[in-house]
Design a protein around this nucleic acid. Structure first.
Lengths: 159, 159
DNA sequence: GTGCCTGCAAACCCTTTGCACTTTA
DNA sequence: TAAAGTGCAAAGGGTTTGCAGGCAC
């Protein structure tokens, strides 16, 4: 159902363990099992769900270890967090169909309209998971001022 | 800068007030000002930011009224919340470029790949807000099981 | 005047943190 | 064995809620 084979899971786990050892991060039973649980599912679980699942294999694990490990894995690039907007809720009075440019540095959000994007209803890569009602496109990058700032920093560091 | 005129703001405010009265929801100073503050900006603020801004006009307003009003406005369709994923953080061990189908009912998320989507770097509708690094497409709709359930409900209600 | 709405404060939930103990390397 | 990682419990930060008084209708 998820399309992930046992072998792929083990590959991901092994890759992470290798990258840990390279960075001097210790490999623990807990970390291995948390990654294994996440790599083995396609359902994008939250910390609590993972916790319950990992506890079957590591009964003494605590929820905060799951949180800590998820952060570690994220910082290591071994996993990704869904939605760039990890902060508090943000609101938009523009209720018409539109898309966003999001600055990954400062969180700036800019609305834009694009009828071609609106029409992207179907995708050959999408298995028939359900009926698509709407399309939301998020273009991610650096806004002008963050780009400018980064340029300055590079210049400073170089000198 | 935001491209929203004073007139458009007042139109949105008026439309909301009308819809409130139609539904028997009371129009208060606080609600009007919160909507006006949100409708007048393109920066997708959070509750706290709106609170600070509205307090300039309504000094005695409280933060919880802002939260309550935002929920009311959202339920009324007068505003939208950024990111469908309003719940807790969810993680994905799939770090390669991919997109999501998201069920707006149950929150199911299904990965899919689409190289055409990956390449949607530019949009004629996007003002030069910044440089785009990556594209994320979210197809929103009802997953199969939610669609099935809704069909059943309709059948029941009709009989 | 009636009932919804507000402000206040306390509760709530998810997530993070401080500390002493355990484990990895 | 030294340092990093864990479990526990308590704190944090954003958001929600119960209640008494206030305001729209």
């Amino acid at each position: 159902m998820t399309g992930i084979t046992e072998k792929q899971v083990e590959e991901r786990v092994k890759a992470f363990l290798t990258s840990c050892r390279q960075q001097g991060i210790r490999v623990t039973h807990q970390r291995t099992e948390i990654l294994r649980a996440l790599a083995g599912t396609g359902e994008h679980p939250d910390a609590e769900t993972l916790y319950r699942r990992v506890r079957e294999r590591v009964p003494a694990i605590s929820l905060d270890t799951v949180y800590r490990t998820l952060r570690l894995l994220e910082e290591n690039g071994a996993i990704v967090r869904m939605s760039v907007m990890k902060e508090r809720a943000r609101f938009d009075a523009n209720t018409s169909q539109h898309h966003h440019f999001v600055c990954t540095q400062c969180g700036l959000v800019r609305d834009f309209y694009d009828e071609a994007f609106d029409r992207l209803k179907a995708s050959p890569g999408l298995p028939e998971a359900g009926l698509v009602d709407s399309v939301y496109v998020e273009l991610r990058g650096l806004c002008r001022s963050c780009r400018e700032q980064r340029r300055k920093e590079r210049r400073t560091r170089r000198s």
